[in-house]
Amino acid sequence: MTNILDLVGRIFISLVFLLSGINKIGNYEGTIGWMESLGMPGIFLIPAIILEIGAPILIMIGYKVKISAALLSLFCIATAIIFHTDFSNQMQFVSFMKNIALAGGFLFLVINETKEFSLERKLGK
């Protein structure tokens, strides 16, 4: 049961970012406009998309999980600080806290080994 829950947990926490990265591709110009309206250069969208698609896939398959989870944890903290600090807006506060909570979840992946349903285990690490 632990192996299944580990896999399901990795999939659940990763899906948010995988779908977000795909959505950013589909709404590329709109996302750049939103980022730039908040003072963030649009060129940063490309690495964000790569991270939001690549790292979740690696976490889901269980390969380079610690590195991928650490990067996504830092990404969550950075995006919370850059994009979600207007606490006069309740939704901004909720988004800030969601990002911090996700960062914490990724830190659990950093400190814990993947279980049996992972590519790292199959390859013998």
Rank of each mutant, 00 (worst) to 15 (best):
A78C: 14
L7P: 10
L119Y: 07
N112F: 08
H84E: 02
A101E: 02
N112P: 13
L5K: 14
H84T: 06
Y28H: 15
G39D: 00
Y28P: 13
M97Q: 03
S20A: 15
I82T: 11
I13A: 11
L109G: 01
I100A: 11
G105W: 00
L15M: 15
E113T: 08
G42P: 15
L74A: 15
T2F: 12
S73D: 04
F96L: 07
G104W: 01
F117Y: 14
G33L: 10
K64P: 04
T2I: 14
M91D: 07
N89V: 14
H84S: 10
L72E: 03
E120M: 04
I77K: 08
I81R: 08
I57R: 05
L18E: 00
L45D: 00
A70F: 09
L19D: 10
V16A: 13
D6T: 11
S95N: 13
I82S: 08
I59D: 00
Y28F: 15
G39Y: 00
M97R: 11
A78Y: 08
G21A: 12
G62I: 04
L109I: 00
A101N: 09
M35V: 08
K64A: 12
A103T: 05
A103H: 05
K98D: 01
L18G: 03
G21W: 04
N23V: 08
A78D: 03
R10L: 00
A80V: 03
K66F: 07
E36L: 05
M40L: 14
L15C: 14
S14N: 11
N112R: 14
N3A: 15
E120Q: 07
V110N: 01
E113S: 08
L109V: 01
M35Q: 06
L45G: 03
T2P: 13
L119A: 08
V65I: 11
N89H: 13
I13N: 10
I111H: 03
A101I: 09
F117C: 02
W34T: 02
L15T: 13
Y63R: 12
W34S: 00
I46N: 06
L109W: 01
